[in-house]
Amino acid sequence: MRLVVRRWKEGWRAPRYDVFEVEADPSESVLDLVERVSLKLDPTLTFEHACHHGVCGACGMVVNGVERLTCVTRVGDVARNGVILVEPLHGFKVVSDLVVDKSRMFSRYPDDTRTLERVAAQVEKLWDCVECGICYSACPVACSYPSYLGPSVLAWAFHRAVEEGRVPAPVASRSGVWSCHAAFDCSEKCPVNFQPGEKIMRLRRLLLRGAVEVV
């Protein structure tokens, strides 16, 4: 198997693509291959991962052009002619190699904390959302309009609107639901079928009908 990885580290003038030849079983995950390269071939390769079973949302990457959680993506399902190209998510600043800075997403939740802290504070988890950032990477608006709140945050706002009957003003602004242009790749690429695109449109409908208060 040939694993091609987009590399970039601070101080480099431009990214480059490194090619690694690795033994692979079709039933292995793409993350397994990335880890093997890191452990055996190039310890400087940086990437994020944690749970290895599709819950933490840390290992989102672009695999052969498609955003995926690499820990639950089998090599045999995505390899093309024995080649897998792995790139960092779009829409976020690359920190190093496959690691991106997701603070543009995390900082826009109502309390500036991570999921586990919110759960501990008895503030709801994002329902089924694993906060992987794949929806931002897939969204053409999020990738071209930095002020856009983004699919997962707006889908969260939809749930809040249904439960509480109100939404924060930024959600109903140009940087909120009105910037979505129905590309729906957020929903198509979401690994947990959270359907952020549909939720954004349903929130719009609530706003158009005056069914929720903007505070």
Binding site: V66, P140, A182, A183, F184, D185, E188
Partner: peptide
Amino acid sequence: RGRSAEHVSFA
């Protein structure tokens, strides 16, 4: 590349 029919339609 790798985009859905919805995204291509958007483009």
